[in-house]
């Protein structure tokens, strides 16, 4: 799985406690189709979100992003909408785990979440966790991932990592 390590896009900014019902309302969970899920992403707080996003755009939010349900449909919908990366002051636990598992890049930085504005153009280097707001010239450094999270990311998600481990056991 090839992961793009440098990302650049326009910012969609949201507040604190963005919950999974806002990211993808439960009424649409009777499908697993990423495209269909993406078409309803964030619609209850910004009905034009899905049509406005261009591939590569970046989502920036406050504290406790992704709180609520364990639905993996939430990071799947964000990823399929074209958003390349989510930067937040903090993430809710299950969302954090799910995003890593499915390969949606996420970065935690309180400062970046505060200083980056809606519509700014931002460049992210996933390899060293740096965030550059090209519009206002400010630079930020995200919290590094714990080593085992890094292993999952490097393997291309939890399924690939587990698959390799299972195969290693069988030989």
């Amino acid at each position: 799985m090839e992961e793009k390590l440098k990302l650049k896009g326009r910012v969609f900014k949201f507040g604190d406690n963005i919950d999974t019902d806002v990211i993808i309302p439960a009424r649409y969970l009777n499908t697993q189709d990423p495209k269909e899920l993406a078409s309803h992403c964030m619609e209850d707080i910004d009905k034009d979100f899905a049509p406005k996003v261009r591939p590569g755009d970046i989502m920036v939010a406050g504290h406790n992003f992704g709180c609520g349900s364990s639905r993996e449909h939430a990071p799947i919908a964000i990823k399929a909408s074209g958003i390349s990366c989510v930067i937040a002051a903090s993430f809710a636990r299950i969302f954090y785990r799910n995003a890593i598992n499915i390969g949606l890049p996420i970065l935690e930085s309180e400062e970046a979440a505060r200083e980056i504005n809606e519509g700014d153009t931002v460049e992210v280097d996933l390899k060293n966790g740096t965030i550059l707001d090209i519009t206002n010239g400010k630079k930020f450094k995200a919290q590094p991932f714990p080593e085992f999270m890094q292993e999952i990311i490097n393997a291309g998600g939890l399924i690939n990592k587990t698959k390799k481990e299972l195969e290693a056991k069988n030989v």
């Binding site: 364990s70 785990r97 939890l158 399924i159």
Partner: peptide, 20 residues
């Protein structure tokens, strides 16, 4: 504790999970 579908999928195969 709650996890996502991928964690559940791997646990179905291995009976194990990662925790902090």
């Amino acid at each position: 504790t709650g996890v996502g579908s991928t964690d559940f999928a791997c646990a179905m195969a291995t009976g194990k999970a990662w925790f902090k």
